[in-house]
């Protein structure tokens, strides 16, 4: 698990880390929407510069961002092949025997790749600079206006934060069960179909049993400490929007407006 960088929080001391999670989530959403307007290369260039500025400000290394993108590379290459096979418009760029790669295939792929890269950059910018718990708090607050139409924003946030809290424990548990079953001769890498099915069962059943046990213990612990879903409670962590947060939102909104302008009016 040590090598996965996508979606991971990196504890650094930067102005971006200190921003209000609500502002960051909203800004991310605005810029993500902006990407989907066909604003052309100029538009993408502007977004790229803006996001790069945020990354530099957050003290994240571009190497880290690059690592987050790597897992996507294979997918993008696959996409390129499909585009080459399907898109036969524009001018042929390269001809190998009967087969030709057309300029539109390259252009289309590049469009998608650039958008995807931008999306990864933007989301990484959020997840790497915001503690998972602060993210949940932000989501809770942003969802709370929807409480009137029955969205249980607090319960959703509690659910996410508990899931986040127990992910490392569940990973440990999974590894322990894998080792225990390997000690009983389970071979996860090879074997006949029936053996494979048994191998998977021998992991899943114990994992479920222990997850249920955990859930029961946790429910007891929460109840014993006075937690009752739906009842009023105070909150320890309070979020405060400051001037820098509003600035971020303003910047994101301007970026979106700019893209709309480039796409439809320029």
């Amino acid at each position: 698990m040590g090598n996965i960088t996508l979606g991971r929080y990196i504890p650094l001391d930067s102005p971006v880390h200190k921003l209000d999670p609500r502002a960051k989530i909203m800004a991310m959403l605005l810029v993500l929407v902006a990407i989907f307007f066909p604003a052309g290369w100029l538009g993408y260039g502007i977004i790229f510069l803006a996001v790069s500025f945020m990354i530099i400000l957050s003290k994240l290394s571009f190497n880290f961002i690059w690592k987050s993108m790597k897992p996507m590379m294979f997918m993008m290459f696959f996409l390129f092949i499909i585009n080459c096979l399907v898109l036969k418009t524009g001018t042929p760029l390269l001809t190998i025997g009967k087969f030709a790669i057309y300029s539109d295939a390259v252009k289309q792929t590049l469009y998608i790749v650039v958008r995807l890269l931008l999306m990864i950059m933007i989301t990484t910018c959020l997840t790497a600079t915001t503690k998972p718990l602060d993210l949940t708090l932000g989501i809770e607050d942003l969802l709370s206006p929807f409480g009137k139409i029955g969205v249980p924003s607090h319960e959703i946030a509690m659910l996410i934060s508990i899931a986040l809290r127990f992910i490392p424990d569940l990973i440990d548990e999974t590894q322990r069960i894998i080792k225990a079953q390997e000690s009983r001769g389970v071979d996860l890498k090879e074997g006949k179909i029936m053996e494979r099915i048994m191998a998977v069962l021998s992991l899943i059943v114990p994992l479920f049993v222990s997850a249920f046990q955990r859930a029961e213990d946790l429910a007891n612990a929460m109840e014993a400490r006075g937690y009752a879903p739906g009842e009023p409670r105070t909150r320890y962590k309070v979020l405060k929007m400051r001037r820098s947060d509003w600035l971020l939102l303003l910047g994101a909104a301007l970026l979106l407006a700019g893209m709309i302008f480039l796409a439809f009016f320029a």
Binding site: A180, S183, V209
Partner: peptide, 20 residues
């Protein structure tokens, strides 16, 4: 490795969680 695992039996902590 499999034959070794048959000769050296390893019982993990809280092994009741491996029953399925």
């Amino acid at each position: 490795l499999k034959s070794l695992r048959g000769q050296v039996g390893l019982v993990f902590q809280f092994p009741e969680y491996q029953l399925f």
